[in-house]
Amino acid sequence: MQMGRMRAGAVAWLQAAPMALVLLVFLVAPIVMIAIVSFWRATEFSIIPAFEFDNYEFLFGSPVTYRVFLNTFKYALITWAFTFVIGFTVAYFLAFHVRTLTWQIALFLLCTIPFWTSNIIRMISWIPFLGRNGIANSALISWGVIDEPLDWLLFSDFAVILAFVHLYTLFMVVPIFNTMMRIDKSLIEAARDAGANGVQILWNVIVPLCKPGIMIGSIFVITLVMGDFITVRFMSGSQSANVGRLISNDIALLQYPSAAATAVVLLGTVLIVIAIMLRFVDIRKEL
């Protein structure tokens, strides 16, 4: 018996080994590397091993850092609010108002297909819509709502948030839909028989039962937005900054140690946010 269990353990180890190996080489080692380099020194064209806290001192001493971190949280929070409301509504419609499984799967797939296409193309595709002579401006002018084209549609915080919501709402829809599909329909009938109205059922039965899905979706959206650099750069026309852009700017200037220090702080921030959110949900149980 003891032997058998040991063998099962060994088999499990072998099966997990490739995944562990990939993660050690391409996840753990790079993080360690970044942590080490964050203490190095940089000249204009090379980086020199050292152990000094200058990069962190500069980072925490600069008011830009705080502004950029604040901006990052702002993007995360606003995007989260929009993706949650839209994602929940869409998932609710699919789970409770579409009646046959075939239609549910078909409409669900329709929602997920854009996820499998290129994010960059999806960002580019907002240009003809939001541009100065774009569809939105021409429509508003022809309706007489505005006289002059609006400048803040493209290359602004508005465009950044719009692109985030466009790209990431799906990450809310999928987990929330998944938990909704597992809600026992008899619970809802019980609530209705007990005299609850639609809003009460939604608020007191469905939302609490969807909490794990909401949490998983929120983790996805918040981490994706906090770690992003490309959407902010492209959609703001390089006018706004978040932490990811701070890092990528340093990289472009070959200031790797300072990029690494910022990256360490960003990773720490993201992990703290996740740790707080994970207190509310056991991911493995929910899949």
Binding site: V11, A16, M19, P30, I31, D228, G244, L267
Partner: peptide, 30 residues
């Protein structure tokens, strides 16, 4: 592997979650 209990499975699981939530630019840079 994860259907069985094995030593270190929790660590591996948290690594997977980290891999999912880590800002992509860190992987690139690292």
């Amino acid at each position: 592997a994860f259907r069985k209990r094995f030593y270190g499975s929790n660590v591996l699981f948290y690594l997977i979650i980290t891999s999912l939530v880590i800002p992509s630019i860190l992987i690139s840079l690292g």
